[in-house]
Design a protein around this nucleic acid. Structure first.
Length: 359
DNA sequence: AATACGGGGTT
DNA sequence: AACCCAGTATT
């Protein structure tokens, strides 16, 4: 099946293609790094992270040789931290199994940790010119409008059909440019809420535009409401003016990041009880819980939390890493060397604001 | 097939 | 506040 709109799309791409830091290089390492960062993350958010990361790790060998904790620190704030772990592991596999050179086909790339079908197609086509399709949120939206697709795009069966369409429409040449032009079109023109159909280079081929249904595409089932949890955290001081911090397990939420120890409040439990229980379970220590120091709200994808941070005094028990990966006593000024999630960073910002007021 | 997994931008 | 974003891995 020949692509009905590729010439117009590519011509548009040459005119308006955004200058992006990861474009203009076919270095597979750079393409791969950008694609991992861009998973579920907008272009503008990625730009500063990409520049810093590349400066810290200019080659896949440098990344493979780095400690994971350093990589996580570079990733701090970007979210979906499993990406950083897989990135690190994949770099080590590329160095050890492939002599530091990325495999050039989508099938081989997809065997690497953190590379699924989308990223495999993106790297293969952009870095190696392979004839492999991509299907991301942008492309799903563009295709659902071009086809005026009434199917629910959140359903796996619909995704399968869309992947097939992506494959069917793949041009013979310039596949990397074509894939990127499709994503640029989705990002800049074929926007979710208010598509700029007047400036669309392929509107002559768009069934939804012809029928005026572009605002009803894509069809998706709304997301379930997110629950709210109350979470406690201890600002535990020792006599040397140090704070106790703990590193979360590698698996799960905020994996590998540091935090002020604590946890989710259970039904029928006061916050003081919750905090003392969590500190016993995770670190085997006893503290006296003092005043509420800060209250912070934060939204994750699947739930919201209110984080209640209490000033605590360390009482007894050498900390043990029972439910955490590691622990450390650190001076407040040394906190920046560790990676924290956004909620704990808000608590740290509050500490600094209050200290600044005192000076 | 359904769910877990961040954080920021847009509307 | 809801929706969206250059998705992947696990169960």
């Amino acid at each position: 099946m020949t692509n009905p709109f590729a010439p117009e799309l590519l011509a548009w791409y040459e005119q308006v293609a955004a200058e992006l830091p990861w474009r203009g290089s076919d270095d597979a390492y750079r393409v791969w790094l950008s694609e991992i960062m861009l998973q579920q993350t907008q272009v503008e958010t990625v730009k500063p992270y990409y520049a810093r990361f590349l400066a810290a790790y200019p080659t896949v060998e440098a990344l493979a040789a780095a400690p994971l904790d350093d990589v996580l620190k570079q990733w701090e704030g970007l979210g979906y931290y499993s990406r950083a772990r897989y990135l690190h592991r994949a770099a080590q596999v590329v160095v050890s199994d492939y002599g530091g050179r990325f495999p050039a086909t989508a099938d081989e790339l997809q065997k690497l940790p953190g590379i699924g079908r989308y990223t495999a197609g993106a790297v293969a086509s952009i870095a190696f010119g392979a004839r492999a399709p991509v299907l991301d949120g942008n492309v799903i939206r563009v295709f659902s409008r071009l086809l005026d697709l009434p199917d629910d795009v959140t359903l796996p069966a619909t995704r399968t059909k869309l992947w097939q369409t992506a494959e069917d429409w793949l041009p013979e040449t310039r596949v990397g440019d074509y894939n990127q032009s499709l994503m640029d079109l989705g990002r800049l023109i074929c926007k979710p809420r208010a598509p700029l159909c007047g400036g669309c280079p392929v509107r002559a081929h768009c069934l939804a535009f012809q029928r005026g249904t572009q605002h009803q595409r894509p069809v998706k089932t709304p997301r379930a409401e997110t629950p709210h949890y109350d979470v406690t955290a201890g600002l535990i001081w020792n006599e040397r003016g140090q704070l106790l911090i703990a590193q979360r397990p590698l698996d799960g939420l905020l994996g590998g990041l540091w935090e002020f120890p604590g946890g989710k409040q259970e039904p029928g439990e006061t916050r003081t009880e919750c905090l003392k229980r969590e500190l016993r379970e995770e670190l085997a220590i006893e503290v006296s819980v003092g005043d509420l120091y800060a209250r912070v709200r934060h939204a994750f994808t699947h739930f919201k939390i209110t984080l209640h941070a209490y000033t605590c005094r360390y009482v007894s028990g050498e900390p043990q890493a029972l439910g955490v990966r590691a622990w450390a006593w650190v001076m407040p000024d040394a906190l920046d060397a560790y990676s924290f999630g956004k909620a704990d960073r808000q608590v740290i910002a509050e500490m600094r604001a209050r200290r600044a007021m005192l000076l």
